[in-house]
Simulated assay, not measured.
Amino acid sequence: MPNVTSVLHDVDEEEKGMVLRVHCEKLAVAFGIMNSVPGDSKRFHHFKDGLCSCGDYG
């Protein structure tokens, strides 16, 4: 259960948890991009109807 006491958005408690999760996911993606090795192949994923564009490849 996330600690939502620091979420300052004027929304209900459940939505505060969602805001916090999305923020953490964005930080994780940014950290991963910043620390990736230059020149390695990159895969970009997008989701449609609950399925990933890579088809769960490797």
Rank of each mutant, 00 (worst) to 15 (best):
N3C: 10
C54G: 02
F31V: 11
A30F: 06
D40V: 13
H46K: 12
G55W: 05
E14Y: 08
D12N: 15
R43E: 12
D56E: 15
V4R: 02
D56H: 10
K16G: 02
L27V: 05
G32A: 13
G58P: 02
S53H: 03
R21E: 11
A30Q: 14
K42F: 03
N35S: 11
V4I: 15
S36E: 09
S36Q: 13
E15H: 08
H46I: 09
D10V: 02
K26P: 00
V22I: 15
V19D: 00
E14M: 04
C24Y: 07
N35F: 08
F44Q: 13
G39I: 00
D49M: 06
D56Y: 09
N3D: 15
V4H: 02
A30Y: 07
H46N: 07
G58R: 03
K48H: 09
A30M: 15
M1R: 07
E14D: 07
E14V: 13
H46L: 11
A30H: 10
K42E: 04
G58N: 05
R43L: 10
C24V: 04
G55T: 10
K48R: 15
H23T: 10
E14N: 10
F44L: 12
L20I: 09
H45Q: 03
S53P: 08
M34Y: 05
E13D: 13
N3Q: 14
C24L: 11
V11I: 15
F44E: 14
G50A: 03
V4P: 01
K48Q: 07
K48G: 01
S6V: 01
D10M: 04
C54N: 03
V4A: 03
K26M: 14
F31Q: 08
S53N: 10
F47T: 10
G17W: 01
V19R: 12
H46V: 08
L27G: 10
N35H: 15
V22D: 12
L27C: 11
A28K: 07
I33E: 11
I33H: 06
G32V: 05
G50M: 01
V19P: 00
V37G: 00
R43Y: 07
M1W: 01
E25D: 05
D40H: 07
E15T: 12
N35C: 13
A30C: 12
H23F: 05
H23V: 07
F31T: 09
P2F: 08
V29W: 03
F31M: 05
K16Q: 05
V29Q: 11
G32R: 14
